[in-house]
């Protein structure tokens, strides 16, 4: 099995550097973060996978929400689909090609408020070395803020073919659904 490896080192420093006025130091809680995807296929159940090895950084600017920033870096080799055999197929050259492209990243470029509890985060996603703009709808669970925590649930979908991952289309769907749930807590220092 893949060892759970959830580094948050350096995150505090990054957050401190970006801590402008109104920006607070919140770090994501890796234990409460789940980055998952789901892909459908013909005559086959949905394949749902999670990544165990990633870094994430959410810097919230409460005064100018538009200046908040979100970055995620995922080591695709840490994919877990409930089977080592299936995981090695997915890590291979037909899909993630982890030898050549060990990381997938997301760097936000814009955030807009869509309702009292939701925001839409747009950013550059890089997969297999190819970068495209993708948007995710994020539900912000502000109720947790009382306890010095904030919860997020981001959902979105993208076409893997845009990134050159075309294996199995159309038997395996082109569209990949992503769901990221995470919690942040305030740094006390």
């Amino acid at each position: 099995m893949l060892k759970r490896h959830l580094p948050i080192y350096g995150l505090v420093a990054v957050l401190t550097l970006s801590a402008a006025a109104g920006r607070s130091n919140w770090t994501i809680d890796p234990k409460k973060t789940r980055i998952s995807f789901a892909v459908d296929a013909t005559g086959w159940p949905k394949t749902v996978g999670v990544f165990h090895d990633f870094d994430g950084n959410i810097s919230v600017d409460f005064e100018k929400p538009k200046q908040s920033r979100v970055t995620f870096k995922v080591r695709t080799g840490s994919v877990d689909v409930g089977s080592d055999m299936l995981a090695s197929l997915i890590k291979g050259s037909a899909f993630f090609n982890t030898d050549k492209h060990p990381e997938a990243t997301f760097v936000s470029t814009g955030i807009e408020k869509t309702s009292a509890k939701t925001v839409r985060v747009t950013g550059n996603m890089t997969l297999l070395g190819v970068t495209h703009s993708e948007s995710f709808d994020v539900l912000v669970e502000t109720g947790l803020a009382d306890k010095g925590r904030l919860g997020y649930k981001a959902t979105g979908a993208f076409d893997r073919s845009k990134y050159g991952m075309t294996t199995g289309i159309p038997v395996i769907a082109d569209v990949v659904a992503l769901e990221i749930t995470t919690e942040q807590y305030e740094q006390k220092n």
Partner: peptide, 12 residues
């Protein structure tokens, strides 16, 4: 078998 991972292993 409905779960993708175990199903894959049985197919193999």
């Amino acid at each position: 078998v409905a779960a993708s991972g175990p199903k894959f292993e049985l197919y193999q």
